[in-house]
Design a protein around this nucleic acid. Sequence first.
DNA 1: TATTGGCTCGATACACTGTATCGCGATGAG
DNA 2: CTCATCGCGATACAGTGTATCGAGCCAATA
Lengths: 231, 231
Amino acid sequence: MSNETVWERPEPPGKPSPAPLSRDLIVEAAIRLADGGGLDEVSFRKVAAALNAGPMRLYGYVETKDELLDLMVDEVYGEITPPPPSADWREGLRHVAHGVRAAAKRHEWFIDLLSNRPHQGPNALTHLESTLATVGFDDIDEVMSAVGAVMAYVFGAVRGEITELRAERTTGMTEEQWQRANGPYMERMLATGRYPMLGKVMHESSDRDPEAVFDEGLDYVLLGIATKHGL
Amino acid sequence: MSNETVWERPEPPGKPSPAPLSRDLIVEAAIRLADGGGLDEVSFRKVAAALNAGPMRLYGYVETKDELLDLMVDEVYGEITPPPPSADWREGLRHVAHGVRAAAKRHEWFIDLLSNRPHQGPNALTHLESTLATVGFDDIDEVMSAVGAVMAYVFGAVRGEITELRAERTTGMTEEQWQRANGPYMERMLATGRYPMLGKVMHESSDRDPEAVFDEGLDYVLLGIATKHGL
DNA sequence: TATTGGCTCGATACACTGTATCGCGATGAG
DNA sequence: CTCATCGCGATACAGTGTATCGAGCCAATA
């Protein structure tokens, strides 16, 4: 007869697992889903299913879907390491910029959630605090101005990168396929002769490492700040 | 007996008006709805209703909703006037930056549609062409780099402005109401003592004209470009 | 111990979305 | 006048966020 202990009992099919839930577990699951398949995968039904729960159960922990999205955003802010205190303002801002870029590349949906609501979560505030702190200017208005400009550039640049990245992925994997898909349309456009500069860009420009392009733009901003404030 | 001609026959209530339709009419209606009530107002049903048509009728002119959104975006690009040929690169880029900002403020939904797909509509291409053309650098890579950095900043900055604007509108109309609504939370946060710089910003910084802030950031970028390329 | 109260969970429902399918009705051709 | 064609839109389907409410369980009280 077989009455050995079953160490890993398979869940009875009817009631999969009444695992305890928490905000963090929900946010974690939502992020995992979003990382895997984009923001479309984040619905209360799908998140709940990923946690073996009914959709309505989530409302005990999260008021509304917008709140869940806010929590996801704040979680990403928490992943970004602050600049070391030893860094001067240029190094510090560069550190922050790269941190945001890296986080946004890990979580492509992050950049899509920027327009919804201003980010006032604890992690976002900590992130902002450390960013402000790394810029040691005396005049607080100058600090805000510099940080604001850098952040605006960073968000704009990262969004551009991700949009392009998504487009490539949609059309097909390779650059070559993209050329074949959008080539005819662009060729027709260029053939009209109304876009000489665009033609030059497409034919003569060297396609460079995205990170180098990002850094070059960032350097413009930092250099401009330094020049203007005489640093 | 009354058999006079009825010159203006009221539409029979069942069939309001079989007005002819076109892509442009549809896009125009969609933009009007979006301007009035945000992107949420743009659904095939609502757009069609605004044109006295059934929802399915639109599919004769527009393949999919994403296409409609693309058309709306391109229409906005068409509203932005190119810089005058006489402008040097700084004036030209400033002109473009202000044009984009103004357009995005007229159509707050515009900035939300940037992440979806790269903008390859005819108006967007024309816009890009004139932007490239206004930067008369010899090296095409330098042109791209400068234009890319400026556009990244502009989109990031404008998005920030609009996000803030929306937040103010959501919480309530006035700044004072906002203070009362979010004040307690922020005060509690600041009271922890973990955000000294943030506290300084909130208490000591002068709240300046958004356009001046935008211009200052833009000047950083332009100044950086000029300095780096020795102009 | 029996009962009752409360609370947690999720099934159901509602209004809405984008879009596929298909039948009706008007319009043009023979 | 009849027939065919085709554009339109009613209907349907799968999905969304979320309000409502009933069932079931757990704990405390009689």
